[in-house]
């Protein structure tokens, strides 16, 4: 592969800038087909993801109300966020609680259920998969929860509790700060059997059956040993994928809350998360620069979390 020019530079041990540039260009030319394959996706990805993200990061250093041109204010947004904004600290606390509860639980739930139903006959499995995936399949089926937890006597929970005489007055489930957070967590968990669940099903289906036969011969006695010694190590890539989904979903679970409470704000900020804080500033207060700063902070929090999980998964099966 390496050209003569390359070998000579390597022998002399000197890399002039020009030589290196020539070498890089030669490699790019040699792999031109690769870039051709990457071109359609790469162009669209750059236009609609990379450029907007860079613009958002840029805006986080400005004051921008979407009407007047953005004005550069350095790191003032970040200083304000960490030093002056008490509500942001509540949002950080709530987001961490959400992420800590819904992240691992939904991740485990997705894998365990996908693994369990993998043993069934195809038709049964498709049916079970549908039952579990049902909450994700319809955009607004979860609005049914607003009906279940409705604050009047027509709400299902209030109706049942009053019927049994446990409570005499209907409870304002989605307004009372004591109940909002737990209810939101339940609803988010209910909706969490989504993308990762499907990916795990497909991943498990793709495993080589011979591995399991070999395992049985080598003395794998029960399903748990099979899981630990054969299935999990084979599923590493899928598990990393699921982890990223779990992180983004649990850190940004706010949209479910916003829809549930039908407002981006909750009483006493009881279920206020970072994304809701962001929505509040971005779409209600038109303080886009500040909203972008919040997004950047959230992004770094997720990246740190992802790195930690990557480390943990790398250690598995060693």
């Amino acid at each position: 592969m390496s050209s003569v020019a390359e070998v000579t530079t390597r022998q002399t041990g000197r890399y002039s800038l020009r030589d290196r540039l020539v070498r890089v260009l030669k490699q790019i030319y040699r792999d031109r087909e690769c870039y051709l394959f990457l071109l359609p996706f790469g162009t669209i990805f750059t236009l609609f993801t990379v450029v907007p993200v860079i613009m958002s990061i840029g805006l986080s250093f400005t004051h921008f109300n979407m009407l007047q041109p953005a004005r550069f204010i350095g790191i003032n947004n970040y200083l304000r966020l960490f030093l002056e904004d008490d509500v942001f600290l509540i949002a950080v606390k709530n987001t961490l609680i959400y992420a800590a509860i819904t992240g691992p639980l939904s991740y485990l739930g997705c894998f365990v259920l996908a693994w369990f139903i993998n043993d069934f006959k195809p038709a049964v499995r498709a049916f079970l998969a549908l039952l579990f995936y049902a909450p994700s399949i319809s955009g607004n089926a979860f609005m049914i929860w607003t009906y279940i937890f409705s604050g009047d006597t027509y709400g299902v929970v209030n109706g049942v509790l009053m019927h049994w005489g446990i409570i005499t007055q209907p409870i304002q489930w989605l307004i009372d700060p004591r109940f909002i957070m737990p209810i939101c967590i339940v609803v988010v968990l209910w909706m969490s059997l989504g993308t990762s669940f499907l990916v795990f099903i497909a991943g498990l289906q793709g495993l080589d059956p011979q591995l399991f036969e070999a395992g049985a011969i080598d003395g794998v006695r029960n399903r748990w040993q099979e899981l630990w010694y054969i299935t999990l190590p084979q599923m590493k890539g899928h598990l990393m994928f699921g982890a990223i989904i779990a992180i983004t979903n649990s850190f940004t679970a706010a949209s479910a809350i916003t829809n549930l409470v039908q407002d981006s704000l909750t009483t006493d900020y009881a279920a206020h998360t970072i994304v809701q804080h962001l929505q509040d500033y971005g779409t209600v207060r038109f303080d886009m620069g500040y909203a972008c700063a919040i997004a950047v902070v959230l992004f770094f929090a997720m990246v740190v979390c992802q790195r930690v999980i990557q480390k943990l998964l790398d250690r598995m099966g060693r």
Binding site: F45, L47, P52, M55, S56, A295, F299, Q306
Partner: peptide, 19 residues
């Protein structure tokens, strides 16, 4: 690609509109 999965869609909506 992996990093972009973790950036909030909420704030990229406006730059997206501009593009």
């Amino acid at each position: 690609v992996v990093l972009s999965l973790m950036f909030s869609q909420e704030v990229t909506a406006i730059p997206n509109y501009i593009v």
